[in-house]
Design a protein around this nucleic acid. Structure first.
Lengths: 229, 229
DNA sequence: ACATGGACGATACTGAGTTTCAGGACGGCG
DNA sequence: CGCCGTCCTGAAACTCAGTATCGTCCATGT
C-alpha cells in the first residue's frame, strides 16, 4: 500500500537520499528520519529497503495474471500482447518514477539483481499460462518456456530503449513491432513443427493437367497444405 | 577458489547443515564451527553465505565467454550451441552437487533469486555477442535479445527436466533437440524478415506450359525462391 | 464515558557482512 | 641462528537490515 501519506513521504525521502548520497550510503534510519517517522514505520510500509524502489510489483503481477486468466488458448496471442501492454503502460504512466528508478538501478548491483528477479516472475507467469494453453502437445513445456522468454525479452528490449531515450518517444509502436516479431516467429515454428528436424522447409509441388479447373487446383492445394504431411 | 582444503570442508559442512536444519536455520557461525574454522575464515573463502551453494559460476562464465569470443558471425550458431553445451556439461559433471543444490534451491526463495540472477548473467553474455555478430542489421538489438533469451530458456528447460529426473537420463539429446528448435525458429525468422509485417508467408505460384522441360521449371522456381521478393 | 482496533514509536534482538588488529607459520637471507 | 616480510588465521568490535515485542496515542462507535 504505497499510497498512504506516510509511505508516500517515505518514498520521496528515499529517492531523494538515494539520489544525493547513493543507495548503499543511505540507511533506513536516514530515510525514516527525513520522512519524520520512526524506523518501525518504515518497515511497516515497506518490507525491505529495496521495496521503496519497487513498490507495487505484486499488484501489477496480479493484474497481468488476471488478464491472462481471462483468456483461453484460442485468444492466447491477444491475451499475451494485452498483458505485456499492461506492464509497459504502468511504466509509462509514471515516467518520472520509472526514469529515476532506471538511473538508480543502473548504478546499484543489488537493485539490478532485484529487478531481474521480478522480471523472472513475469516470465514464470507467462510460462505457466502458455503451458496450460498448449496442453500436452509435443514439446509443450519447451515451447511455453521459449514463448514466455521471448515475450518478456521483447518487452524488456522495448522498455530499455524507451528508458535510455529518457521516455521521449512513444514505446507502444516499437512494442507492437517487437511482439509482431515474436508472433511471426512462433507462427512459423508452429507451421513447421513437423519438419523442424529437416534442414529446410518442405516445398509443395503440385502438378495438374493444364485443363484442370481453378477450383480443382485450389482444392488440391488446400488439401495438401492442410495435410499433416 | 573453492578448491582449497579449508573451503572444501566449509562447503561440505554447509551442505550438510542446510540439509539437516534448513538454510535459514543455519548461521555462518554454525558452518564455520562444524568445519573447525573461524567465522572470519568462512568469509575469506566465500563472499557470502549464498556463495557456498554457487561456487565457481564466475569461472564458468569466463569459460563461456572465451568460447563465444573465439567465434565470429559466420560460426555463430556453432559457437552458441557449444557454449550452452559447456554449461550443461558442467552441471552433469558433478551431478551429485547439482541435484543437491537443485533440491535446496527449490526450498529457499533467496537462493532461487540468486540463481535467477546468475542465469541472467549468461543471457546478458549471449546478448552481447549475438548483438555484435548481428552488427547494425535492422532490429539487431531486438533479435539479439530474443535469441539470447531463447537459447538460455532452452538450456534451462532441458536442465530442469534433467534435474527433475534426478539426473537419470542423458540430457544432451534433449538439449540438441531444443537448440534445433531455437535455430529453426530464427532461421525462419531470418528468411521471412521482409514479410514479417504480413499476416502470413508468401506463396509462390508458378505456372508453366505442360510442355515445359523440367529444367525450365526448376530454374524458374529457383529464381523465384531466391528473389528478394 | 468507555471499549476496541489500528497506526505509530521505542527498544532489544538476530545475523550477515566488514574492518581492524594481533598472533603464528613459513620461507628466505644475512 | 636470528631477523624479517608475507600469508593465513582467529578474535573482537562494528554497521546495518530485518524481526519481534510492547506500550502509547488517537479515532471511532455505542
Amino acid at each position: 500500500m504505497p499510497r498512504s501519506p506516510v509511505s508516500q513521504r517515505l518514498a520521496e525521502a528515499a529517492t531523494a537520499l538515494f539520489d544525493e548520497r547513493g543507495y548503499d550510503e543511505t540507511t533506513v534510519d536516514d530515510i525514516a528520519a527525513r520522512a519524520g517517522v520512526s524506523r518501525s514505520t518504515f518497515f511497516r510500509c515497506y518490507r525491505s529497503k529495496e521495496d521503496v524502489i519497487f513498490p507495487d510489483h505484486d499488484a501489477l503481477l496480479d493484474q497481468v495474471r488476471a488478464r491472462l486468466a481471462a483468456s483461453t488458448a484460442d485468444t492466447a496471442i491477444v491475451a499475451v500482447c494485452d498483458a505485456v501492454r499492461i506492464v509497459l503502460t504502468r511504466y509509462v504512466e509514471d515516467a518520472e518514477v520509472s526514469l529515476q528508478r532506471y538511473r538508480l538501478v543502473g548504478k546499484v548491483p543489488a537493485l539490478r539483481d532485484r529487478e531481474i528477479v521480478s522480471v523472472a516472475r513475469y516470465q514464470r507467469l507467462f510460462r505457466e499460462f502458455v503451458g496450460d494453453w498448449l496442453g500436452d502437445s509435443p514439446d509443450a513445456a519447451l515451447r511455453a518456456e521459449l514463448m514466455a522468454a521471448s515475450v518478456v525479452a521483447a518487452h524488456n528490449q522495448v522498455l530499455r530503449g524507451w528508458l535510455r531515450d529518457n521516455g521521449r518517444h512513444d514505446p507502444f509502436g516499437p512494442l507492437d513491432h517487437a511482439l509482431q516479431y515474436v508472433i511471426t516467429t512462433f507462427r512459423h515454428l508452429e507451421k513447421s513443427r513437423d519438419e523442424r528436424d529437416h534442414d529446410t522447409g518442405q516445398i509443395v509441388v503440385a502438378t495438374f493437367r493444364s485443363s484442370a479447373s481453378p477450383d480443382t487446383v485450389m482444392d488440391a492445394i488446400r488439401a495438401q497444405l492442410h495435410a499433416p504431411s
